[in-house]
């Protein structure tokens, strides 16, 4: 028995019925959306994760020519105390040789401290050049060993496959030698 006898439809006002379907359907979509959003949003960074989203770094112990790496939002941040030569080298580069043109002034707050996210903009490896004796690339900055991207002393891409300069995170000097990143 795969049949049923439904009541006769009689005089059905199709217009009214369509209106009810649309109204019901729209209410259903809105309701599902309202319920779905909290479920989806629960996967976004939670309050405890966001609470760790900014860090403070005292840069005074970094000697001229040295660099340190700190962790910020699970990623390395390079802070290099640049020499006078490195700064002037970065400042004189003409814009037209750069793949991602940015002046050194645009990439720093204080000339001697360069702060950048230490993640190669190509495919996410960590460039070398932080420690003494590490490969710094042809432009004296950083060199990504994965696919051979060369960054200059301002962290700008000069050679290799990376499309853009190393990212400068949002930061500020909250004291003369204390940086707040994030």
């Amino acid at each position: 028995m795969a049949e049923a006898t439904n009541p006769p439809r009689g005089d059905v006002d199709e217009g009214k019925r369509d209106f009810i379907y649309l109204l019901g359907g729209a209410a259903g979509v809105v309701g599902v959306g309202i319920v779905a959003w909290p479920l989806i949003d629960s996967l976004n960074p939670s309050a405890d994760v966001l609470a760790l989203a900014s860090i403070e770094v005292d840069v005074s112990p970094i000697e001229v020519g040295q660099a340190i790496t700190v962790t910020w939002r699970g990623k390395p941040v390079f802070i290099r105390h640049r020499t006078v030569e490195e700064i002037s080298e970065a400042e004189v580069v003409p814009m037209d040789v750069l793949r991602d043109p940015q002046t050194d002034e645009e990439r720093r707050i204080k000339a001697e401290y360069l702060v950048m996210v230490g993640v190669c903009t190509h495919l996410g490896c960590i460039p070398s050049g932080q420690k003494v004796g590490e490969e710094k690339g042809e432009y004296g900055g950083w060199f990504c060993p994965c696919h051979g991207s060369h960054y200059d002393t301002s962290g700008r891409i000069r050679k290799g496959p990376a499309p853009t300069n190393l990212v400068v995170p949002p930061y500020e000097f909250i004291q003369d030698t204390v940086v707040q990143i994030g």
Binding site: P38, D41, S42, S46, A47
Partner: peptide
Amino acid sequence: DVNYGWLI
């Protein structure tokens, strides 16, 4: 801490 964690 989790967004809407209390609700879920």
